[in-house]
């Protein structure tokens, strides 16, 4: 999956940096990143899609008068466009357009929180691990332990243990998604540790905590950024997967995953119940992965042209 690819990137990047004179690639430098981002079509395109999806989710009450959970047995299984139901209604007469919009909010919340929490933990632990061999020895065993389980099994176990709710989904996905990012941050920190500017900082008398924050963190920021969009997409997909097997959000919350589950039995006569949440999900995942790839290109030292 995409997580492993980005892992490889950091290893290659580390080798590029490691060989001979340790010189930072141009692309890891902040002032080139923004320029390249604006010139990269894929990046602009995927950011555009994500912005539209986000705005739709946030502005849901303004875009529809229907509530996603209002049952209307009289108007069951209406086709798209009929009677003011843009995306039709499901088997309980709920408005699919509203489900997609409000479900997007769940996706957004889960994605944002999982990404934020796991990236912060991964960044802090990864930095410490890359910098302090003693921390590293312990932490890497823990990481190996967690990563030896297939992530869906681990997430299922965690979600099953805590019972279905949004908080559970966030917790379960965070537990799964910390580790690959942690390894990536650690890899960059290992490289950064050898940089001349870090030694120069030490020679000046800069304390270790400030070295980590002011010297090393800016370097690991780039891989963290790339990782963020992949983690976000993994979280969105993970939420849908957990909801789909019934271990996701509770019945009072709408999400694309739970909408897909409920659509299962009706897909043959009411395709729209499955297709619209499905399109929203695919579009989000696609945009996030495109963005991740674009960021990787932008920040890839091998593509760095001065």
């Amino acid at each position: 999956m995409s997580l492993e690819q980005s892992d490889n990137l950091v290893v290659e990047q580390a080798q590029t940096l490691d060989s001979g004179e340790v010189e930072l690639p141009a692309a890891v430098q902040p002032w080139t990143t923004w320029k390249r981002l604006r010139r990269n079509f894929t990046a602009v395109f995927s950011i555009g899609i994500l912005v539209i999806l986000t705005v739709c989710a946030l502005a849901a009450p303004l875009l529809t008068n229907n509530a996603p959970l209002t049952i209307d047995p009289v108007h069951r299984l209406r086709a798209p466009g009929v009677e003011g139901h843009l995306f039709g209604t499901d088997y309980l007469g709920r408005d699919v357009f509203a489900i997609v919009l409000f479900g997007g909010r769940t996706t957004l919340v889960v994605g944002l929180l999982v990404t934020a929490i796991s990236m912060v933990i991964a960044a802090v632990l990864g930095l410490l691990s890359g910098f302090y061999p003693k921390v590293d020895a312990v932490l890497m065993r823990v990481v190996d332990g967690f990563m030896s389980f297939p992530s869906i099994v681990l997430a299922t176990a965690a979600a099953g243990y805590f019972g279905p709710s949004v908080a559970t989904v966030i917790l379960a996905l965070t537990i799964v998604l910390i580790w690959p990012s942690l390894r990536i941050v650690r890899g960059s920190a290992l490289v950064a540790r050898e940089l001349l500017m870090v030694e120069a900082g030490r020679s000046v008398g800069v304390p270790e905590s400030r070295i980590l924050w002011k010297y090393v963190f800016p370097i690991v920021r780039a891989p963290i950024l790339v990782q963020t969009s992949f983690i976000f997409s993994a979280a969105v997909l993970g939420e849908a997967a957990l909801s789909f097997i019934g271990l996701g959000v509770d019945s009072k919350t709408v999400s694309w995953g739970s909408a897909l589950t409920e659509a299962r039995n009706y897909i043959q006569n009411a395709w729209w119940i499955a297709v619209f949440p499905g399109i929203a999900l695919v579009l989000t995942i696609l945009a996030l992965n495109l963005l991740g790839d674009a960021l990787r290109d932008i920040l890839d030292p091998r593509l760095a042209r001065r």
Binding site: E23, L195, M197, E199, A200
Partner: peptide, 23 residues
Amino acid sequence: LRQERRHMQMIFQDPYGSLNRWM
């Protein structure tokens, strides 16, 4: 030792590499 570094400093061969480019 860190405090003593105030009294002893280093100039490196590679000035760009030795400066923090985010500062």
